[in-house]
């Protein structure tokens, strides 16, 4: 069974991505694989979901065939692509946000790297204004 892969963060951007991912999975009759990652090079990373946020997401996804994974890797985008290859992914969904040039220099941009590197189609979604 093919899968829709969602690169998720525990914030409104991640929620938007998951919402779209669920709809897309239903349309394609695929399962949903949610990936949450961090570079793991800071003590605290707010984009890395804690136990509570993971449990909340799991509850929200009830009724959809799904799987949630967490990865710690130097390049989170690459890790998402690897997961997609492993689970027979047909599509990657990622939430995008505004980043300044300096912000990108310092923190990098997982979404940008996904769009450029992933061998499968990438859908970028934005939370409603």
């Amino acid at each position: 069974m093919s899968a829709v892969v969602v690169a998720w963060t525990p914030d409104r951007f991640g929620t938007a991505a998951v919402t779209y991912g669920v709809a897309e999975a239903r349309l394609r009759d695929a399962r949903l694989v949610v990936v949450n990652g961090s570079r793991g090079d800071a003590l605290v990373d707010e984009e890395y979901a804690g136990a509570d946020a993971l449990a909340d997401l799991d509850r929200e996804l009830e009724g959809v065939e799904h799987e949630i994974r967490q990865v710690v890797a130097a390049d989170v985008a690459e890790a998402v692509v690897d997961v997609a290859a492993e689970v027979d992914g047909v599509l990657v969904v990622v939430g995008v946000r505004h980043r300044t040039t300096v912000g990108k220099l310092l923190m990098g941009s997982v979404a940008q790297r996904l769009v450029l590197e992933a061998p499968l189609p990438v859908v970028c979604v934005k939370p409603p204004r």
């Binding site: 961090s38 793991g40 090079d41 003590l43 990373d45 890395y48 804690g50 136990a51 710690v72 130097a74």
Partner: peptide, 9 residues
């Protein structure tokens, strides 16, 4: 030991 699972603050 660069990469470690981030902690919850």
């Amino acid at each position: 030991h660069l990469r470690r699972r981030p902690l919850e603050v």
